[in-house]
């Protein structure tokens, strides 16, 4: 390495960023790392071969969804996540999660939990490991079939977030009980009637061909109903009131993650809906359909956890969801 102090020179750069980036940010000016790491990285033309797994389309093909965009880089992640910022954000969150787990463990808070609360937490949270696995599958699918780096990138992040959450839920299970509780929960997921609506919802989503429809089904509707129900209304409100604040500490990651991720989900829907009335109509139709199915699917869980209060809570959640999507330009 040269020992000369090269800082002393001031040189005028030939350009401030890449040409394709400059075209998108309104001229040659310094660009962010999110922009340089995202714009136009995915190939768009001159593909050499058709996929053997989908001969009807190009490797990357706009026609894999009914949503039509003039520019697929109209989608921006409000979190500005590229790999570096994504891992930094998750690393901070996992650090909090880690200290929460350590706190709960070191203070013996598990043995202080009322048995009914511990039991409910296990019954409610552990089958969700499988649902999170479904979230991993579906977001990997969107990453695979989606169009453009602005789409593929946040979806691989989200796919791995779901895996991370499944792993946190596993740890909760191992902390509150042991391995046999995981097996029991899987059995419930497979066979217990109260989980079958959700399982069917997820399995049906596995075979969707339109990836934007899948985005609506999973990321907008399913997450949008389930996270408020489970982590906000049941864990943070109900279980906490019953002396289970330790459970809320163990699921803090999920609560924070949902708050953050929903902003990006909203931005995505909003951008697509704003593009054209046809998009808005298609998105609204999907959302209507999946909302109806989604509410039905989570009903038995809500009733099981909240008893008489379930209908009121579900009503709230549905209302909140409706007003959320209305702000995004959808008409239910």
């Amino acid at each position: 390495m040269s020992t000369i102090d090269l800082r002393t020179v001031t040189i005028k750069p030939l350009r401030h960023t890449f040409t394709h980036v400059a075209e998108r940010i309104g001229g040659d000016k310094p660009a962010t790392r999110y922009q340089e790491g995202t714009f136009d990285i995915q190939a768009t033309h001159n593909f050499h071969y058709r996929p053997t797994w989908d001969p009807d389309h190009e490797i990357f093909d706009r026609a894999r969804t009914a949503i039509v965009m003039k520019d697929w880089y109209a989608f921006r992640d409000p979190r500005q996540f590229y790999y570096g910022t994504y891992t930094a954000a998750r690393a901070r969150q996992q650090e909090t999660a880690e200290s929460n787990f350590a706190f709960v463990e070191s203070r013996g808070l598990v043995s202080a939990l009322p048995e009914a609360v511990r039991h409910l937490a296990l019954e409610l949270l552990l089958p969700l490991r499988h649902l999170e696995w479904g979230g991993n599958m579906n977001n990997a699918q969107i990453c695979d079939y989606g169009y453009g780096t602005a789409i593929s990138q946040p979806h691989i992040y989200k796919a791995m977030d779901h895996l991370g959450i499944a792993q946190y839920l596993t740890r909760v299970g191992l902390l509150l009980a042991d391995e046999t509780a995981l097996d029991a929960a899987k059995q419930q997921w497979i066979a217990d009637p109260k989980w079958q609506g959700l399982r069917k919802y997820v399995e049906d989503s596995f075979v969707l061909k339109d990836w934007f429809e899948l985005f609506v089904a999973h990321n907008l509707v399913l997450d949008g109903l389930l996270y408020p129900l489970v982590y906000e209304r049941i864990v943070d409100d109900d279980i906490t009131m019953k002396g289970g604040s330790a459970i809320a500490m163990l699921t803090l990651f999920m609560t924070e993650w949902y708050g953050e991720t929903a902003k990006w989900v909203d931005a995505t829907i909003k951008t697509a809906a704003a593009e054209s009335p046809a998009n808005a109509q298609q998105l609204s139709q999907w959302t209507r359909e999946y909302l109806q199915r989604g509410v039905r699917a989570i009903q038995p869980i809500a009733r099981h956890a909240l008893g008489a209060n379930a209908e009121a809570v579900l009503g709230d959640i549905e209302d909140q969801f409706k007003s959320r999507v209305a702000k995004l330009g959808l008409a239910l």
Partner: peptide, 26 residues
């Protein structure tokens, strides 16, 4: 995606001073 981006970010500075890298995806 990390490798793609860290490479782009590492070489971004070269692009400011040298030719031939400005339109790499194209």
């Amino acid at each position: 995606i990390r490798h793609s981006q860290t490479q782009i970010h590492s070489m971004s500075n070269y692009n400011k001073y040298y030719n031939g890298m400005h339109s790499f995806p194209k």
